[in-house]
Computed example of a mutant assay.
Amino acid sequence: MIEFVGHVRFVDIIEFLGTFAFAISGVRMASTKNFDLFGAFTIGFVTAIGGGTLRDLFIGVTPFWMLNHVYLWATLLALLFVILFKSKVVKLQYTFFLFDSIGLGLFVVVGTEKTLAMEFAPWVAVIMGTITGSFGGMLRDILITQIPLIFRKEIYALACVVGAIFFTIGYASGMNIVINEVATASIVILTRILAVKFKWHLPTLKGEKSYD
């Protein structure tokens, strides 16, 4: 059973923080392309809700952000955060990496847990957790016209897979849900950080150049 903090589930707090973190990464990237405020808000919102929306459509429920306006406010808060701390958030590449990694880890937890709670098979939960974590970032990168991180050599989707598998095993074995949530998010974030620090990456697929 999911733990509660007052009348708010702990996983709801994780989802809000994940929305905030991903929205910051989206707004920050939009600012580097000189988007106006509405454009930046849109990129931030799409980044934050993209993965969860696709997940909910796949598992047959109303997309989460349509049931609670808090996610719009989380995106607006992220926009204000970037405006207020522009000198640090926009200029430092590390801030994008940090918030993107945090959002990735938190959303893997939300996606995997929600799918398991609806009694889908474990392998489906792993896929949904990966989609929840990575699809919003892919939409962000497409909208600002750059190759999505998920398609580059960086360990990105694989970090989601590792985290989702860990959560699924913990869920099946009866691990305390809050401990499982925190541990899973930490594993995804740490995997991303270590992969970048030590330049871990998957082999690239190389083919012949086309001269057409």
Rank of each mutant, 00 (worst) to 15 (best):
F120D: 01
M128S: 05
I165Y: 00
F20S: 10
C160V: 02
I193P: 02
A30Y: 03
G174V: 04
Y94H: 03
V161C: 09
T19W: 10
I189A: 06
V109G: 05
I147D: 06
I2P: 11
S31C: 10
A157R: 03
T19P: 14
V61F: 08
E181H: 15
L194A: 10
F120L: 10
T32L: 15
F10K: 07
I43W: 03
A125E: 06
V70I: 11
V61Q: 12
V70E: 12
T47A: 08
D100V: 02
A185M: 13
L37G: 03
T145D: 15
E113V: 04
K86P: 04
L57E: 09
T19R: 13
K33I: 04
A74Q: 06
L143M: 15
V46S: 04
F167P: 00
I179R: 10
A40L: 01
F151M: 13
R28H: 13
R192Q: 07
I24Y: 08
I102T: 06
T95V: 09
I102Q: 02
V8L: 15
I13E: 10
M138F: 05
L158H: 03
N68L: 08
G207I: 06
A117M: 11
A74I: 05
K88V: 12
A21F: 09
G174I: 02
G52Y: 06
A125M: 05
K91V: 04
G52W: 02
F99Q: 09
M29S: 15
F20Y: 13
S186H: 01
A172P: 04
T95W: 11
A195N: 08
T191W: 03
L37N: 09
I165H: 00
W65G: 12
L37P: 00
S210V: 11
F151L: 14
T115N: 08
A157W: 04
I13C: 09
P148I: 01
H69I: 11
L92V: 01
K206F: 09
K114S: 12
T168P: 04
I131D: 06
L98R: 03
A78Q: 13
C160E: 05
I150Y: 02
F85V: 05
G136Y: 07
F151G: 08
L98C: 08
Y71T: 07
F10H: 06
M128F: 01
E15P: 03
I83T: 00
H69T: 10
Y71H: 13
A48P: 12
G50E: 07
V108S: 03
D141V: 05
V90H: 12
F167T: 01
I193T: 02
I147H: 04
W123S: 14
F20I: 08
D12V: 01
A48H: 09
A195D: 11
G133N: 03
I127P: 00
V178C: 02
S186R: 01
I150V: 15
T75K: 07
